[in-house]
């Protein structure tokens, strides 16, 4: 019973703060709302017995990505006054488009609702021992390729962020 209440609470929190991300005028407030959304999703992971993934999610998103966003916003000195706004009819059209997409997706995924709940759940599946075993046996090649991706991203970010050298 408690699990269900926690599910409803976390879902409400996630949707509410996701809406705040879109609608708040101040970019810093958007970032803080997105952090709340990420914590709510990490709570969902804990409820789904994916404890290691929840920890990684908090560390990577709240710890690394959102700090990067906050740094850039504060570096560029953005605030409510410098915030560009779209005209009203585009905002209206965007809301209608998002709502239509939601209706289409829910209608398309309706057959998933007929899947029965599992009788027996293996609680050890989200533990670091099991995940590490799967990662280094079945997914060893994608793991190595992702390290290459990080190298390329690191070099690219440094090259882009560097000030251009002006030749006289």
């Amino acid at each position: 019973m408690l699990t269900q209440y926690l599910f409803y609470f976390l879902s409400f929190l996630a949707i509410f703060s996701a809406l705040l991300v879109v609608f708040s005028k101040n970019p810093v407030q958007s970032v803080l709302s997105l952090i709340v959304t990420f914590f709510a999703i990490a709570g969902h992971y804990v409820l789904l017995n994916a404890q290691f993934l929840a920890a990684v999610h908090v560390i990577v998103y709240a710890g690394a990505i959102m700090v990067l966003f906050l740094f850039v916003i504060m570096l560029l000195n953005l605030n409510e006054d410098s915030e560009p706004q779209k005209p009203g009819w585009i905002k209206f059209a965007a809301t209608i488009t998002g709502g239509l997409l939601m209706v289409v997706m829910i209608a398309a995924l309706r057959s998933a609702a007929e899947m029965p709940a599992p009788q027996k759940v293996d609680a050890s599946i989200g533990m670091i021992k099991n995940l590490g075993h799967v990662l280094f046996t079945d997914f060893a090649l994608p793991f190595e390729i992702s390290s290459l991706l990080f190298l390329v991203a690191m070099v690219g970010a440094v090259m882009l962020g560097k000030k251009e050298i002006h030749n006289p």
Partner: peptide
């Protein structure tokens, strides 16, 4: 959540 994301990109 996905639709809110799409809406935000357009909004």
């Amino acid at each position: 959540l996905f639709s809110i994301g799409v809406m935000g990109v357009l909004f």
